[in-house]
Simulated assay, not measured.
Amino acid sequence: MGDTKERIVSAGATLFRRQGYTGTGVKQIVAEAKAPFGSLYHFFPGGKEQLGEEVVRWSGALYGRLVDAVFDPAPDVVTALENAFAGAAETLVDTDYADACPIATIALEVASSNETLRQATADVFESWIAAIADRLAAAGIPADRARDLAVATLSALEGAFILCRATRSTTPLAQAGAMVVDAVRRALP
């Protein structure tokens, strides 16, 4: 990705995560990216929707790498999940509850109004579910159960993000994490 295009995508990702898709204007994105206004339409002839789709897929891949970053150093899947929920809580506190999941922020806004962005968010969530399920299956959990637990894990994490931001407390993440860890622990051979 070229430097200007990359700056636009990165700025879009930051602004969409914090302000939402509809709350962010294209002028604001190019200003944040320190790019000429015309460059947005040069790189994204489909305008904001095309940029939004690329931001979702780019952010999704970036955040998807967190699965490896959390699971690889952990001695087991239970510890990895404990670390994931604790790390998410730490990020929320460190960012004054501004930085949660960039994909969920957009998905909540557009799921019933923009098919292109809905599909992009669904694809990203599916890739994350598959990555978590693979890790759980590798730990000995049967594939069907691993997938169910991966869906539950992501659902618990995303739901907890919303509750944490609304209540300005990390308690929902701690509670959701404890439930997920318990379920995974019970599913292990």
Rank of each mutant, 00 (worst) to 15 (best):
M1H: 07
D3A: 11
D3Q: 08
I8A: 14
I8K: 07
V9P: 09
S10W: 11
A11K: 02
G12C: 07
L15K: 04
F16D: 04
F16T: 05
R17T: 15
Q19W: 06
Q19T: 06
G23A: 12
G23F: 06
T24N: 09
K27C: 01
Q28D: 10
V30P: 12
K34M: 14
K34N: 15
F37L: 07
Y41D: 01
H42N: 04
H42A: 02
F44H: 09
G46I: 04
G52K: 03
E54H: 12
V56R: 09
W58M: 14
A61N: 09
A61P: 00
G64I: 01
V67I: 13
D68G: 11
F71S: 06
D72Y: 08
P75L: 04
D76A: 05
V77M: 06
V78H: 09
T79S: 13
A80K: 07
L81K: 05
L92G: 12
C101D: 15
P102L: 03
A104L: 15
A107V: 09
L108Q: 11
E109P: 10
A111Y: 14
A111P: 07
S112T: 10
S112Q: 04
S113M: 01
E115M: 04
T116Q: 10
R118F: 14
T121W: 07
T121Q: 00
T121K: 07
A122P: 00
A122C: 00
D123R: 13
V124K: 03
S127H: 02
W128H: 15
I129H: 13
A130K: 10
A131F: 06
A131H: 03
I132T: 13
A133K: 05
A133H: 11
D134S: 15
R135C: 12
A138G: 14
I141T: 09
A143Q: 10
D144T: 12
D144G: 07
R147P: 00
D148Q: 12
L149G: 11
V151H: 15
A152N: 15
T153D: 00
T153F: 01
S155W: 08
E158H: 06
G159L: 10
A160N: 03
A160W: 02
A160M: 02
F161V: 04
L163G: 08
R165C: 08
A166E: 11
A166V: 11
R168M: 06
R168A: 05
T170V: 13
T171P: 00
T171G: 04
Q175T: 13
A178R: 10
V181C: 04
V181W: 08
R186H: 12
R186D: 14
A187W: 05
